[in-house]
Amino acid sequence: MRRRSVILLGLGGAASAAAFTLGLGAWRSREGVLARQDPRLPLPLSLMDWRLTDHRGNAVSPDDWIGRPAMVFFGFTWCPDVCPTTLLDISDWLEELGSDADDLTVALITVDPERDRPEVLADYLANFDPRITGLTGTSDQVGSAAEGFRVTYQKVPREGEDYTMNHTAGVFLFHRDGRFGGIVDFHEDRRYTIPKIRRMLG
């Protein structure tokens, strides 16, 4: 009786091992990853599909970031409070990390491509840590990027022609291999942030 259970267990084990091996291909495929993906969290960079232009005029796509850890957030330069605050926080983190962060890709993706053209981003970012890159594109291009990061944004009209943008506020972290590594929330305590970033850098 006991012996039979052992055999059955053994067979079961072999079957699961085979299933595991067979399943591994699907597991690693784009569809497999997408199926298991929490719809609220950013995709791995390797599965994102977008193309943007940086504030120096260079084309950038997610593949360009793989191989280095990355820190990405969405915002716009017409916002007087959240975006300078986030940029200042990031500048402070970079300063604290020093040369350890030289390897890190740091990018602001605008949710307001209408006003934030590359030269406008360049002008604005000149006030912050030079390691921060600004990215913009057509509204469709920004839309594709937002989709990959599971970011939402919305134009909110104000008096006259003026408008502001509501948008996802967190800072996304990615491992060297492009896997999503976590979010730094807007009001998060800085004591937890630096170790979180260091884990991406290691």
Binding site: C79, D81, V82, T152, V156, E159, T164, N166, H167, T168, A169, G170, I183, D185, F186, H187
Partner: peptide, 17 residues
């Protein structure tokens, strides 16, 4: 010309003002 009072609110991860 138009100074206003605003509040930054982050709700469900979305910042609005």
């Amino acid at each position: 010309e138009t100074p206003m009072l605003h509040e930054t609110v982050v709700s469900d991860g979305i910042a609005s003002m």
